[in-house]
Nucleic acid binder design. Structure first.
Length: 476
RNA sequence: GGCGCCAUCGUCUAUCGGUUAGGACAUCGCCCUUUCAAGGCGGAAAGACGGGUUCGAUUCCCGUUGGCGCUACCA
């Protein structure tokens, strides 16, 4: 039996997402189950959005979940580098091969032309697809434009007629008409590859045997398959996992619900419970089987064939139940103490808290009421709590809504960024910073007297803060 | 708009043509209990709709409807 190699390929463009942990878990289980290897690769070809902090956070979060990988940017391995931004020359080389083979071409079309083209296609019920305009250029014309310094991208060629079949291990054959497959950009005008090129090249060079990824990739699978054939490579097996959903069945998104792994960590969920819960979504138990399972058990009973194809709702109530069982059934007194310490009063965290709290108390017993909000989940806020603020209800709603959006977009979560956002909102609403801070204080801490606001927010973390703002929006 | 994926209790799911459609979470009731949990027992709760195929469809096929994804020089 050929050895199995799977991978998780997160893009470091935000906070670690539970969906990433879910896909990673499935890849991990499949590899381990078959005695294969599991690789972590960072897909940071989008220079504008990728950050080193996000990469660090994602690796930390996956480790917190208890997942480990055999190869990756942090542990090395024989197929490195494992960060796409460090593999540019490789992609350039393969893009040139496609160009030389006539499987790709340089495209000088302007964004405006492409936009107009798509508008026409949409209006006439046609699939959105590059019309092949630059395909008609002679080599001389291409050289002339290049020499003139015209920016260009490299697009893959796609046949005009026929169908291509993607064989999904779980879903069976999926047919696509070539007419509905776009001539995807492979190399951007900045010379960096897009996901599609980098992904195929890397999966091949890293000898990935099974590409297990989210359902959002189904429609681009034909492009990937085509690239494998252009290169003359044996494509891997494909499995597309269903997307996790919000309770209203929409794609699990941080706009509406907490999706960050860090959120669940800060809320006091145990990593074993989270991973157990995700494992249950991938492979449900049979009747009579205990749903409480550690990672080893999850691996042992893992079956690709049993992964459901419909998008499951991320049901926090069930996670709560599992988490409770871990706390009362799997934690003895000593490990309970250790967990609580790690979660609540780790040395780093306690040091920060101490500096903020010490000046504000007279007795140590003052700590509990002062800091209760740091150790709580959702606060039980009431409309009366917002009585003594200088903003009226519509203003507060606008401020909280604005903050929800801006906090989401904030690249780095720290007091400086938080302060900037709040100052900006004060300006937008024409309010004094002090008057704006008060309602936020209540929303975040549940009281009007505590440690400084920005520090509190940093300590709580982005997801908890956003969750509390959502909570506040429900009562004001 | 185009292309694709999906469709069983509120939620996660089992059922590989014939079942009283099973389990788990949540919910409701009872028991236990100094409180609250936990625990035990029990209840209510589902095959989207319309056509076929078949002796027989939740199960196979087609259509409709609905949900979701993709439709970028983001992944």
């Amino acid at each position: 039996m050929p050895s199995v190699r799977t991978r998780i390929a997160p893009s470091p463009t935000g906070d670690p997402h539970v969906g990433t942990a879910y896909v990673a878990l499935v890849n991990y289980c499949f590899a381990r189950k078959h005695g294969g290897e599991f690789v972590l690769r960072i897909e940071d070809t989008d220079q504008a959005r990728s950050t080193a902090e996000s990469e660090r956070a994602i690796l930390d979060a996956l480790h917190w979940c208890g997942l480990t990988w055999d190869e990756g940017p942090d542990v090395g391995g024989p197929h490195g580098p494992y960060r796409q931004s460090e593999r540019s020359s490789i992609y350039r080389e393969y893009a040139d091969k496609l160009l030389a083979g006539g499987y790709a071409f340089k495209c000088f079309c302007t964004p405006q032309r492409l936009e107009e083209m798509r508008a026409v296609q949409r209006a006439s019920a046609q699939p959105s697809r590059y019309d092949g305009h630059c395909l008609s250029y002679t080599p001389e014309e291409v050289a002339r434009r290049e020499a003139a310094g015209q920016p260009y991208v490299i697009r893959m060629r796609v046949p005009d007629e026929g169908v291509i079949v993607v064989d999904d291990l779980r879903r069976g054959p999926i047919e696509f008409d070539y007419k509905s497959v776009d001539m995807q950009v492979l190399v951007k005008s900045d010379g960096l590859p897009t996901y599609h090129l980098a992904n195929v090249v890397d999966d091949h060079l890293m000898e990935i045997t099974h590409v297990i990824r989210g359902e959002e990739w189904v429609s681009s699978a034909p492009k990937h398959l085509l690239l494998y054939s252009y290169f003359g490579w044996q494509p891997p097996e494909f499995v597309h996992l269903p997307l996790l959903r919000n309770p209203d069945k929409s794609k699990l998104s941080k706009r509406r619900n907490p999706t960050g792994i860090l959120f669940y960590e800060r809320m006091g969920y145990l990593p074993e419970a989270l991973i157990n819960f995700l494992g249950l979504l991938a492979n449900a138990t049979r009747e009579g089987e205990d749903e409480l399972m550690d990672l080893t058990a999850l691996v042992r009973r893992f079956e690709l064939e049993h992964i459901p194809v419909g998008g499951p709702v991320f049901d926090v109530a069930k996670l709560d139940w599992l988490n409770g069982r871990y706390i009362r059934e799997r934690l003895d007194a000593a490990s309970f103490v250790r967990r609580v310490e790690e979660w609540a009063v780790s040395p780093e965290r306690l040091t920060k808290i101490a500096q903020l709290a010490a000046p504000r108390i007279e007795r140590l017993s003052d700590l509990a009421p002062l800091l209760a909000f740091l150790f709580s989940g959702r606060l039980a806020l009431r409309a009366e709590d917002f009585k003594n603020v200088k903003l009226d209800a519509p203003e507060m709603r606008e401020a909280f809504t604005l903050a929800l959006r801006e906090f989401d977009a904030l690249p780095a979560w720290n007091v400086f960024g938080i302060e900037d956002v709040l100052k900006r909102i004060a300006q937008t609403l024409g309010k004094k910073g002090r008057d704006l801070a008060r309602p936020f204080y209540v929303a975040i801490t549940g009281s009007t007297t505590s440690i400084p606001l920005y520090d509190s927010m940093e300590l709580l973390g982005r997801d908890i803060v956003r969750e509390r703002l959502r909570g506040a929006l429900e009562v004001v």
